[in-house]
Write a protein that binds this DNA or RNA. Structure first.
Lengths: 334, 334
DNA sequence: GGCCTATGGTTTACCGGTCCAATAAGAGGG
DNA sequence: CCCTCTTATTGGACCGGTAAACCATAGGCC
């Protein structure tokens, strides 16, 4: 292993001069710099980043927690995070929590030991209980894609999920739907609130028994919830699914129930996931600015790394957008 | 920042003794150990992993290169890699190359600087040109999910893609198909070879003009290639797509061409991607043991890390499997 | 009682960089 | 020609651990 000392000896200078040439922070006479560079070249020297990290206290690495890498939501998030980090010369240390709080805790503990300069936590599912562990963290932490109650103390960059639900509701209301059902994952209460607000403007309420929970966000779960919804109230003319995959289940349930989408039944999803683009009719959905969110979160994080101490507790909400396709239409009677 | 020295002073010992307590490699009197542990607890000490890495020469981090994180193939691979690493107490540093050779090279260069203990490279698309850079790497490198010609010098854990093509061909042949077409991504020549071998056993050849290339693995690309294939030879009774998404395109093209799947036309895909599970008819495909592959690759890698110097150039091929669903059926005339 | 050996702890020397104060060499001014 | 002021280079301390050699104490044995 060739070290800076080796380069220095070969170039006839001290280690410090080699360091100066590399960092460029201190002036070095051109002739000397050339000698040093030649020595580096000849010996094939590459600086030891670990040693540098120890001396500077910065690893130029950022940790990212995600619940999973499957599914386009987190996949896009990861890619965007990596892009931004790369632009700034940082590395990405990835930890998936996999619905396993204990695993999350272990990962958290080991990252705390100064192996990362900052931490981005996406998705609240598994880590929420262990956030207090981070209270004394020596590095900045930012949360993103956070839907449930936000623990103060950390800045958050997330999506206005309430508005996402509202957009879905407003769309259906404007199409004349009055009797609607909701298929929801248990954690999506905020989206439902927004959905209700849209109807409340017209004095219409969405009763609790119109909300059908799907324990898992799967096609089968969507089918089951939708079937239950249609059975519970055959008069519904529209369904809002808080997750695209549940919406697909609704499409299938409608088909087997003999109801045509969108003529008899409108279906609107949430997330605008690319992997459901293949479904027919094409799904109307709520698109989320995932990449934008990821970018802003990372940039906030990196700003906090450089200006240590700043980055007060803040909340940044990004706006979702309605994407109208073929699965929604005016209510039959309207 | 509380250091080992602080703990040592508080416990009335030297920092080496603290180190011994933590590592457990050297015997420490129980009473002393208890004092040290108490001091650790009181001060909230956590060891500095960077300093440890510098001293030991090991970062307990493994780098993983993938072309992208989108798509279930690499997503599952990443998850499995992380699982295995976690079992062994290693961290995951993720780099995506994104069809960008230059980006790949940059990442490679920075990881070479001893910030990882080992490197796993999955997918040959972008890094193949830069592998020579790794020739002098001080850490083990393993390639996986490698389809094209394997550069010697590195161990490879991959899938027997030739056999995958063969299984697809054999299935169609056994169903009585004689006149077949192939929809392929440009890089999938090995799969096509295997496909041909299956037919060659019966003296049937698959001519070059029955192979239709799709430049990008997209639905549209599949539709275009399939449409071209059906136009070029209306007599084909079966289509092999080297990628599931292309197979979906074939389903769509068949529909618009008025051909029923599987009655008039059999379609077989490759990869058995979960994201196409929604398609109807359900796609017959070739399943790849992705998780198994990832696991074996990482374990090989970690073995090479511990027993330095070993891990000679080896090639490990994992067996794909045929998964028969509803998109293939006996040839019309058979 | 003297010698040998465990056992538990300390000392000293790294690992490979960066940071800062000190110094040597030139340039410019009086 | 001497003194000052830059500018380029050097030396040593330091980041926070680990590794190995070394020392002290106590117990076992003849």
């Amino acid at each position: 292993m060739v070290t800076m000392q080796d380069v220095a000896e070969r170039a006839g200078v001290t280690k410090q001069t080699v360091s100066n040439v590399l960092s460029g922070r201190v002036a070095v006479r051109p002739a000397t710099a050339a000698r040093v560079r030649a020595a580096i070249e000849e010996l094939g020297y590459t600086p030891n980043l670990v040693a540098r990290s120890l001396a500077t206290g910065s690893t130029r690495t950022v940790g990212l927690f995600v619940p999973t890498v499957g599914g386009s939501f987190y996949a896009e998030l990861i890619e965007e995070v990596e892009d931004v980090l790369e632009e700034h010369g940082y590395h990405l240390l990835l930890c998936t929590t996999r619905l396993d709080g204990e695993r999350a805790r272990r990962h958290l503990a080991s990252l705390t030991s100064r192996s990362v300069d900052a931490l981005l936590i996406a998705g609240d599912r598994d880590l929420i209980d262990h956030l207090p562990l981070l209270a004394g963290a020596a590095f900045p932490v930012v949360l993103c894609a956070w839907e449930t109650e936000v623990p103060d103390r950390f800045p958050v960059v997330t999506i206005d999920y309430e508005r996402a639900g509202y957009l879905a509701g407003r769309h259906l209301r404007e199409l004349g739907h009055r009797r609607v059902a909701v298929l929801a994952s248990p954690a999506h209460t905020v989206r439902i609130e927004g959905f209700r607000r849209a109807f409340a403007a017209d004095g219409i309420s969405v009763p609790d028994d119109a909300v059908h929970l799907a324990p898992e966000p799967t096609l089968a779960g969507g089918v089951a919830a939708a079937t239950a919804a249609l059975a519970a109230d055959p008069a519904v003319t529209a369904v809002f699914a808080t997750h695209d995959i549940l919406a697909l289940g609704a499409l299938e349930a409608a088909r087997t129930a003999g109801r045509r989408v969108p003529a008899d039944l409108s279906v609107i999803g949430h997330d605008d996931n690319p992997e459901v683009r293949l479904a027919r009719p094409a799904l109307t959905s709520i698109a989320l600015p995932r990449r934008e969110m990821a970018r802003q979160a990372v940039e906030l994080l990196l700003r906090a790394v450089t200006k240590t101490g700043s980055a007060a507790n803040s909340l940044q909400l990004l706006r979702p957008e309605l994407v109208v396709r073929d699965s929604t239409a005016p209510a039959p009677g309207a």
